[in-house]
Amino acid sequence: MRWLAAIGVLMALLLAVTPGGARAHALDPGYLSLENVTGQSWRVFWRKPDVSGRPMEVDAQLPAFCTPASGPTPYTDGKAWVSQWQANCSETLQGATILIDGLENTQTDVLLRLQNADGTVITSRLTADVPAFEVPVQLSGLAVFWQYLVLGWEHILEGLDHLLFVFALLVLVQSPGRLLGAITAFTVAHSITLAAASLGLLSVPSPPVEAAIALSIVLLAVEILKQGDGKPYLTANAPWIVAFLFGLLHGLGFAGALSEIGLPSGDIPLALLAFNLGVEAGQLTFVAGVLAVFVVLRRMVPALARTLHAPGAPGTKLLGYAIGGVSVIWLTERVAGF
């Protein structure tokens, strides 16, 4: 009974820190897209999150010289609330401010994407602290690089499924050398598929990819639970192979997020490089944080550290059950959503 209670507590903690219960990502963000059609005419697409069957109380506000400055009553697409309209602006949007009214009263964010007539794309993440965006007069290469670097960083740190996969690798692979090889292989692999999918060389539907990512975590959880039985398992013996193969899969997941943002036509290689570096920076930050916590535990509570570190130890098995339980819920949700 104590084992069941311990498992239940850890599962509850994992689900508690997962926004929306067993969802792999944070509460669905809003999305505002402005595409320059011709002259000062803009095609606007506004998607705001669903809250208990009703649209979140936020609204996209274009500058006052645009008509209309806000869109029609939104309709539901089954997951969020959508409105579309064409706005005619008597002045250029450069230097103007776009506001998400009411965002300061929420805990979500809004991704803004603005595409100019020349194909250049400007993206920004608006939050409760920064609900408005001033359109830059000119976007330099450095600004593009920084913009996509931050977007990559934010995506990986909000993608709990990707982080849980990396965490499972940390639990499975005990050798520092093998762990470094596994992380490197994972990085190389998802960089390949991220670039290929973003450049249009590879196209895979998003729902099966998301389900397969959840399945990859389930498989690692199974190997965590089987550790210590004396049998050789692929992840323990050749972690770089498993990390590389699953990294190809996770790269498609990253590409799905990047496709929603879009790439600036004049700076595609730069933006792609920056986004990938942002993903890596976020991933390495997470790994460093987990290892730092373990080092502190090893010094302050060595007995607990041993039970979390040794293959087949009670603490390790507890982690395996928790990781497997959450990932099975994700897998079930995603398959049911096909």
Rank of each mutant, 00 (worst) to 15 (best):
T193S: 00
V37I: 14
A281C: 11
D28A: 14
L164Q: 09
L194D: 02
L160K: 04
G278C: 03
L27E: 07
T285K: 08
V9D: 01
P29M: 05
A281Q: 06
L291T: 07
L151S: 09
V137Q: 15
A60K: 07
G256Q: 03
F45I: 05
A80S: 13
A80N: 10
A26F: 12
P269W: 08
Q147N: 07
V135R: 13
Y75I: 13
H25S: 02
Q115F: 11
G30T: 10
M300T: 10
I217G: 06
L248D: 11
T316P: 04
N116M: 14
G78R: 14
A322D: 01
F294P: 00
W46C: 09
L270E: 08
F133Q: 00
I224F: 11
I192D: 01
N276R: 08
I192R: 09
G78Q: 11
R23T: 01
I261Q: 10
E210Y: 10
N88A: 08
H162M: 02
V51H: 05
F275K: 06
V173H: 03
L13R: 11
A182C: 06
A257P: 05
T38A: 05
G21P: 15
V209C: 04
L215D: 04
V301G: 03
A24N: 11
Q84E: 06
P269K: 09
G315H: 04
A197I: 01
P131W: 04
V218T: 05
I323H: 00
Y148L: 02
A271T: 11
G256L: 10
A257G: 08
L112K: 14
L277W: 09
Q147V: 13
F165G: 01
D77N: 14
L263Y: 03
I192L: 04
P314A: 02
T108E: 04
V166R: 03
G21R: 07
C66D: 05
K317M: 02
V326R: 07
